Computed example of a mutant assay.
Amino acid sequence: MLATISPPAGYGVAELQLDIDDTEHERRRAAGLGVATGHGFGGLDVLMALPHGLPVPLEALTDHQRAYVLRAPAGICTVTGGQVVRHVIRPCRVRLATVRAASASQLALDAADKFTTICARRVIITRPPSVHFPEKLLEFGSYGIGVCLQHPDGELETLVEPRPWRVKRHSAEDWWFAETAYGHFLAQQSPPASALSQAP
C-alpha cells in the first residue's frame, strides 16, 4: 500500500511517499512488533549480515552478533537448535519526497536535495515561472529534482520530471531511515501506542 507521511526530524519540511510492504506489515502486527531500530545502525548491521529466512549456525557469528540475536524478540529472528533465522525485512520503501514552496528557489532545491540518497525528489510550486525560470529549471533538472506547478484549481503541471531513483547499494543507514519512516506511518494509524515496540 502507499502512504504519505512527514519526514523524520532533521530532514526539513517535505512529504514522503512510502510503499509499505503489506506482508511484512501484517507479519509485524501479528508478532506485536513495530519498528526494528533498537541499537540504531549496529543492530541493523547484524541483521543485514544474516540471510533472510535461512538458518545460520550461532557459532558462525561474532560475539556481538550472537549477543544481539539472543536478545532479539521473535518478530526479529528466532534461535533454535544452535541456529538463528532472520525474519524481519525492510518494512517499506521511500518512493518520493515532495517539497512545497511558493517558487523554485534555492531554499526549495536545498530542501529537496536532502533526500538525494533516499528516493526520487520533486518540488511543487504555486507561483508561475518568471522570465528567469528556464535557468532555474535547468538547475533543478541537473540535480534530478522534478518541478510541478500547482494551478489554482489544484491541477499539477509537470515542468521537470524527477529523475527515477535506483538503489545503488543496501546499507544499515538506509534501512534505519525506512524503519524510522515506518514508525511515523504507524503513529498515524490507530491505535498508535502499541505499534511502536523496538528490538533490543
Rank of each mutant, 00 (worst) to 15 (best):
F115W: 10
T117I: 08
A101R: 12
A104D: 12
T80A: 14
V46K: 08
V13M: 09
V94G: 01
L96P: 06
L18W: 02
L186N: 05
P8H: 05
L2I: 11
G34M: 02
A108S: 06
I125V: 13
R163N: 00
T180L: 05
E26G: 01
E59S: 14
V167T: 12
Q150M: 15
P91E: 03
L70D: 10
A30I: 13
P164E: 07
R127W: 06
T4F: 09
A111Y: 04
T80K: 14
P192Y: 07
V85W: 02
R163K: 12
V123Y: 01
S142C: 04
V160D: 00
E173K: 13
S6V: 10
V131T: 11
F185N: 02
I118V: 14
L61W: 09
I89W: 05
R27C: 01
Q17D: 11
G183D: 01
L159M: 12
H170A: 11
H87T: 00
G183E: 04
S197P: 02
I145M: 01
W175Q: 01
I118Q: 14
V79E: 03
A112V: 09
G144R: 02
L50Y: 08
F177W: 13
L61K: 04
A14K: 08
L2H: 15
H87Q: 09
E15W: 12
R166Q: 13
V131K: 12
V13L: 11
L61M: 05
L16S: 06
M48H: 15
A120P: 00
P73V: 07
R93K: 14
F177S: 00
R71W: 03
A49F: 03
I124S: 00
T126F: 03
L159W: 12
Q189L: 14
Q188V: 01
V84C: 02
S105C: 04
V79N: 03
A199L: 07
V147N: 06
L107G: 14
G81K: 07
Y11H: 12
E155T: 15
H39E: 14
R86A: 00
A9Y: 11
H184A: 10
G10K: 08
S194C: 09
D45A: 08
R95G: 01
S194E: 12
T4H: 07
R95F: 05
T180F: 00
L138R: 15
E139G: 02
P134E: 06
P152L: 09
G154E: 10
G141P: 01
C77E: 06
C148I: 00
S197W: 08
G81Y: 04
A101P: 07
A199Y: 04
S171D: 01
E157C: 10
G75W: 05
P129D: 13
T37C: 10
T116S: 13
L44V: 03
G42F: 15
T37L: 11
R27I: 02
Y11V: 00
D153I: 09
E139A: 13
P129C: 11
A111F: 06
P7H: 04
D22I: 10
E15T: 13
L54F: 11
